[in-house]
Design a protein around this nucleic acid. Structure first.
Lengths: 130, 130
DNA sequence: TTTACTACCTTGCAAAACAAAGTAGTAAAA
DNA sequence: TTTTACTACTTTGTTTTGCAAGGTAGTAAA
């Protein structure tokens, strides 16, 4: 278990949000998305992306159309559906809440002894084994 | 599939970070943590929390000591270990990176046509079924 | 006609949140 | 004393999801 693991865990939950954000500024196909996310420090591989795009499509948040490529097979260009835009607005709110939550916790906003029962600084019964 | 699901997904990845953040300001036992997180809009139940605390303990990020309670069974008060503090600092950095990433994406920082191959607005081959 | 490349898709695995059920000890009520 | 309620900690099974790895197929250059 290393820190990278925890970091990627933090990124995980944001993947869906980031993809919707990205598609907000225009259609894109898998490689566009992977490249853009990589530039933004979100590491994604196609084995992760394709199932996610399929799910978002199935849920009606995305649509796509095939486009010929000058060099290689045709590409699926995904774009936000109207439902996807609404969804994204909800996630914008969720993101705001999340940043607020973290800010709160950073400012030690915790009510330190709401039940008047905190003597944990005493060192009896110390246990650090296992 | 509803928006709440996506929202909770966003929160999920942050749970570990929030708990470490919370413990930074002092020891706490399960109920303290659940209550504090609830106040900060992070919904957690004990079936989620206990395994997570055990894992963090096992990884050496937390220590605990038993405390008698005036009303009920004794409690495990968890606190950050020195390793936990270092870990938390790394996650602070990760959090910064994450907020930066989202900001970037929000500002449509995507290079819209890096390979000069974007005509996806044309509507041939429209596909929106299942 | 091969070989390389690109794009899309699928499968199996591991991690983790969560619900739900379980254990055990304390204290108040009967 | 015995029962009941409460609190705290633990465990089990399910579901979701990211991801590695492998697979298919079509295009184009060698």
């Amino acid at each position: 278990m290393n820190v990278e693991n925890s970091k990627s865990q933090m990124r995980k939950g944001m993947l869906e949000y980031c993809i919707l954000l990205l598609l907000k500024s225009g259609p894109a196909y898998s490689n566009d998305i992977i490249r853009s996310l990589k530039e933004a420090n979100m590491i994604v591989v196609d084995g992760t992306l394709y199932p996610l795009l399929s799910r978002l499509k199935k849920d009606g948040l995305l649509g796509y159309n095939w486009e010929e490529s000058t060099q290689g097979p045709p590409r699926k260009y995904y774009r936000l559906s109207p439902a996807g835009r609404e969804w994204l607005e909800s996630l914008d709110v969720a993101w705001e809440e999340l940043t607020q939550t973290v800010s709160m916790l950073k400012e030690s906003h915790r009510r330190a002894d709401a039940d008047g029962n905190r003597e944990a600084e005493t060192d009896n019964n110390e246990q650090n084994n296992q």
